[in-house]
């Protein structure tokens, strides 16, 4: 049986994330009630796992690190068809950078047990580093392929995948177990179904803290993070805007005139 671990992250809803701002005076993030949702490209990782499960004899485990309310995105993945879920949640995990996150997730994967494939989204919409997949693979001492946009062969110990490059791709042969970070091009994620949500009632989410994971305190969260935020600055990219008004036709005409003045059109 193919054992798949899908790593997912709860991120502020990208549709509302612009509401989170830095207060220019206090340099503290303004409080906001932006809801947390499943990171968009993680849905593609989830979909890849589900499609593999439809083709092969596979078992899907969801792993996430985050505060306790993040269990709703784990639940969502269970409702989509995953078999079991784990949430790594502890105050000590807070403030982790990509390095500490990858380390903690790797510890989680090791504790879950034997695995063949680890899937995750290429990047999270809030962090956007793309580091967690490769760093996790490093800690697990297994290969990684980033930006996978097609799984070409998936039977046996060696898989063949296409990974995105600037204006192209590379075709890569990789030996399992391995980590794959996936792009939005890989597939079209399915939607939640009511019956899936009902089936998820019986699926368990196990929560592990720092003690269960046996991660040393100095390796977790902010303490385990090589990087820190040293400053928050507001920026002044302001230009004085001239709003062009009038009917649609008039606006277009005036704008063409402005563009013509640049001599570029």
């Amino acid at each position: 049986m193919l054992k798949i671990v899908v790593c997912v992250k709860a991120v502020p809803d990208p549709k509302e994330a612009h509401k989170i701002k830095i207060d220019p005076a206090t340099k503290i993030l303004t409080r906001s009630d932006v809801p947390f949702v499943l990171n968009l490209v993680d849905k593609n990782a989830m979909e890849a796992a589900l499609q593999l499960k439809e083709q092969l004899d596979a078992h899907i485990t969801i792993l996430s690190m985050g505060p306790p309310p993040a269990d709703n995105i784990v639940k969502e993945c269970l409702a989509l068809g995953a078999d079991q879920g784990f949430l790594l949640s502890d105050r000590a995990f807070g403030g982790a950078d990509a390095y500490a996150t990858a380390y903690t997730l790797a510890k989680g994967i090791e504790k879950i047990g034997p695995y063949d494939v680890v899937l995750c989204g290429m990047a999270s919409s809030d962090g956007s580093t793309e580091w967690v997949g490769p760093e996790m693979a490093t800690f697990l001492k297994i290969p990684v392929v980033t930006r996978v946009n097609e799984i070409v062969e998936y039977d046996g110990e060696w898989w063949k995948v296409k990974a995105g490059l600037e204006n192209g791709y590379r075709l890569v042969r990789v030996k399992l177990p391995a980590v794959f970070t996936v792009t939005r091009d890989l597939n079209t994620p399915r939607s939640l179904t009511f019956s899936g949500i009902i089936k998820a009632r019986k699926k368990e989410i196990t929560q592990w803290g720092i003690d269960e994971l046996a991660v040393p305190e100095e390796s977790a969260g902010q303490k385990g993070s090589p990087t820190i935020i040293s400053n928050l600055a507001t920026i002044d990219s302001k230009r004085t805007v001239e709003i062009i008004t009038g009917t649609r036709e008039e606006k277009a005409e005036q704008l063409v005139q402005k563009l013509a003045d640049t001599g570029l059109i």
Partner: peptide, 18 residues
């Protein structure tokens, strides 16, 4: 409940996409 929120999400996705 969390489950009801998920129902809402499923229904919304359905309505918006289908």
């Amino acid at each position: 409940t969390e489950e009801q929120e998920m129902f809402r999400k499923a229904a919304r996705e359905f309505a918006e996409t289908k």
